[in-house]
Amino acid sequence: MNEIKKTYKNYVGGKYVRSESGKTFRIELKNQFYEVPLTSRKDVRDAVVAAKKGYTEWQKLTPYNKTQVLYRLSEMVEGNSETYQQILQESGLTKSKANQDIKNAIDSLIWYAGMADKWEQMTGNLNPVAGDYFNISHQESLGVVFTLNTEENSFNQLLLSILPSLTTGCSVISFSGDNSILALKLAEDINNSDLPSGALNILSGNFSQIIDDVSNHVEINAMAIYKDLTSSDKKIIRENASKSLKRIVIKPPTSGLESLLPFIETKTVWHPKGR
């Protein structure tokens, strides 16, 4: 029997899409190679439109509900762990390392799932004031976040580049390069996990081709760079982003409450106490 070759596609707005440019690039694993979408600038713009919609939908869910959805994602990933393991091994990891990486990834998922309804009370505050009113610092998610995955062949690192912003309620456009098979495979589990369409979008390609469009795009509220970039790339991003006051976080923390802080904003509320 002939083996059916799989075509991996970008995942945007809850749909699997090819690049509108029709372009692909080749990723070679140990036993086979894949032609995956080479994301064009137009694809990025489409993803932003989808993420903008997805943000509203993701926001509508209660924090408790967000927890359930992320937990379900971990169930889906665990159910498919053999496939991830195979991809990791074909990317050059040993069996035990691949196994450990997936276990770590599932742990990360469950940890962030648990955080979804807790980070707000952990970061918010009732501020001490000298008067008859409350002063409350309340935290809100930023909006549409573009995250650039590391170059490592690691499923856990991929998730750690997505989950912090997603957990706070941001919608995420996750971009991967030569290791994007893992991310494109993850799209299938995202699709099965009740995450609203557009809340998490997966793109693959060459970041240097879209760096200007992403950093200039006014509708992207933050960029989280988990990959090592050259200083000239960082300069481009910072300069472009400054025009739209986009938040740029380079190499943000990937564990603990700290990992969520780059993606939230403080809103302070004053309220009279009354007698």
Binding site: R45, V48, D212, D213, N216, H217, V218, E219, N240, K243, S244
Partner: peptide, 10 residues
């Protein structure tokens, strides 16, 4: 004019 995609927010 600016080469940057805009948000209707502004």
């Amino acid at each position: 004019k600016t080469n940057a995609y805009q948000s209707s927010y502004y």
